[in-house]
Design a protein around this nucleic acid. Structure first.
Length: 156
DNA sequence: GCCAACGTTGGC
DNA sequence: GCCAACGTTGGC
């Protein structure tokens, strides 16, 4: 089993939006970055756990844990002309972008702010904390994952 | 709102 | 294949 972190801007899609979904499950559409796509397409497996991160929030925070419930399939929003993430180079016959389904597992009782992550030795080297990091789907080590849960005072 | 750190595009 | 210009991300 592997661990991941996924970013979203809560103004466009928040953990509360996920909580309101049927079965608390959604498809993670809209990723248009090759490295992030490759992680979803090639490496994310059913049962993997995902830290849910709110970027461009005040403060930016890890807000919960989700679980991968469906492995990669084409992101159909990429061939919808009316979708904001439309990509004319992606078609149903030759899809360029992929996504997975995730289900909310646990919302943290309190958001774990980015400021609470700085200086934590177990998290040094975490991609999220690297200056300038923009990767929206990123792998997390078990050690990092466990440290996050501990900081959030959460057990799964 | 600012701006550093990206990733992508396209001319050459 | 190089790289300047551009658009975007995302913390602050």
């Amino acid at each position: 089993m592997q661990y991941w972190l996924m970013k979203t801007e809560p103004e466009s899609y928040s953990i509360d939006d996920l909580a309101k979904e049927k079965n608390k499950t959604t498809f993670w559409s809209g990723v248009r970055n090759y490295q992030a796509r490759n992680f979803m397409r090639d490496d994310m497996k059913k049962g993997d756990l995902v830290l849910f991160y709110h970027s461009n929030a005040k403060p930016p925070s890890i807000v919960g844990v989700a679980e991968v419930v469906k492995e990669s399939y084409p992101d159909f929003t990429s061939w919808d002309e009316n979708d904001h993430h439309y990509d004319p180079k992606s078609t149903a016959e030759n899809p360029r972008w992929f996504m997975v389904d995730i289900k909310l597992k646990k919302k943290f009782p309190e958001a774990l702010g980015r400021d609470q992550l700085t200086g934590v030795s177990a998290l040094s080297g975490m991609e999220l904390m690297r200056k300038g990091s923009r990767l929206s789907v990123q792998p997390v080590t078990k050690k990092q994952f466990d440290a996050i849960l501990k900081l959030a005072s959460v057990t799964l």
